[in-house]
């Protein structure tokens, strides 16, 4: 039964290769996008770390973007 399912009535090569191409390229783009996002989040958090403590506290309080990134970085670490 499984062999019949994989054969897809003789069109197995075409059906499976279509789904595989879509799955492979979607996965590649997902990992590439996530890697880039993590890289920028990390770099950004590092640059914030280098700021004077007083300054860092002030902008983290006033900026939702910064507090969100710091929160996600804290979750990772």
């Amino acid at each position: 039964m499984i062999i019949e399912f994989l054969k897809m009535g003789g069109y197995g090569f075409y059906v499976w290769s279509s789904f595989l191409v879509v799955f492979t390229f979607c996965t590649l783009l997902f990992y590439k996008t996530r890697k880039t996002l993590k890289k920028y989040e990390k770099e950004f958090a590092k640059e914030l770390e280098n700021l004077p403590a007083e300054h860092k506290k002030r902008i983290a309080k006033s900026s939702k973007v910064i507090s969100s990134i710091l929160a996600s970085q804290n979750k990772l670490s």
């Binding site: 996002l37 920028y40 770099e43 950004f44 640059e47 914030l48 700021l51 973007v65 910064i66 990134i69």
Partner: peptide, 11 residues
């Protein structure tokens, strides 16, 4: 990512 790039420039 694009928003972070802009904020990074501002920092």
């Amino acid at each position: 990512t694009e928003i972070i790039k802009i904020k990074k420039q501002n920092i």
